[in-house]
Amino acid sequence: MRESTSFKWTRAIGLTLLAGFALLPVWVMVTSALKPLADVQDRFSWFPSHLTTQPFVDMWHTIPLASYFVNSIVVSTVASIASVLVALLAAYALSRYRFRGRQTFSVVVLSTQMFPGILFLLPLYVIFVNISNSTGLQLYGSRTGLIITYMTFTLPFAIWMLAGYLDSVPRELDEAAKVDGCGPLGSFVRVVIPAATPGIVAVLIYAFMTAWGEVLFASVLTDDSTRTLAVGLQEYATQNNVYWNQIMAAALTVSVPIVIGFLLLQRYLVAGMTAGAVK
């Protein structure tokens, strides 16, 4: 297939512009995180006047960043693992069995994905407050409430993606395990799950990313001691002096693990996310 010169030029210019657009915030984030405070308070400069890692030290003291970090890690880890476990069971049922209500379940679960979060927020807040008051079970302002909320939010997409991955594991593997004397759950645990591991890890990353970045519910369901990064980072801006270099350092720090995880597993993630649409 020959490509015309004009197409190649259009492509080069188009890709350069798009890459510049995509990377501009990354450049600003990285360079500003390495700037002394005076640089970010004055007119913007493309490069630091001199390189400093001080913002990465100071950022922990301006706001209780470490505490937010721990909250985010605990909430995102527990929610994503729990969500994937629950989703795996459901996905296995959807992938390997035909049963009454299968279609209804899929449609209802997937359609909750399109509803606006604000619709669930007010009643969930009211329900959590009332449960806390009547039973003493701390759902409001606690990590537990946030974890339960997040694992449910990632559930529809996780089930959908995992069902796709499990579909792609050949049924002959199940059959072979059955011949070897495994029950349906035995073959699931010993054969199907190992064969689908990359997909499962991809869904885990997706669920973790979702919980890590969630703002709407975290802004209402957490208090000072359980606040997550997604909401806590805003507090830099409410200080008398806005330390933009520290904010950029903190933004960079909370992004790096996520971006690396995403890029390492992008093949599986992308395949899982797009499978349903392309099918």
Binding site: P25, V215, L233, S255, F262, Q266
Partner: peptide, 30 residues
């Protein structure tokens, strides 16, 4: 280039949008 294009999607929203907030500041934004 493909990887570069995926970065905005991979970044946590609150981290990238707060960067945009800085970029759009009147006096010291890019």
């Amino acid at each position: 280039i493909r990887t570069i294009f995926l970065i905005p999607y991979a970044l946590p929203v609150f981290a990238s949008v707060i960067t945009w907030n800085f970029m759009l500041q009147r006096d010291n934004g890019v």
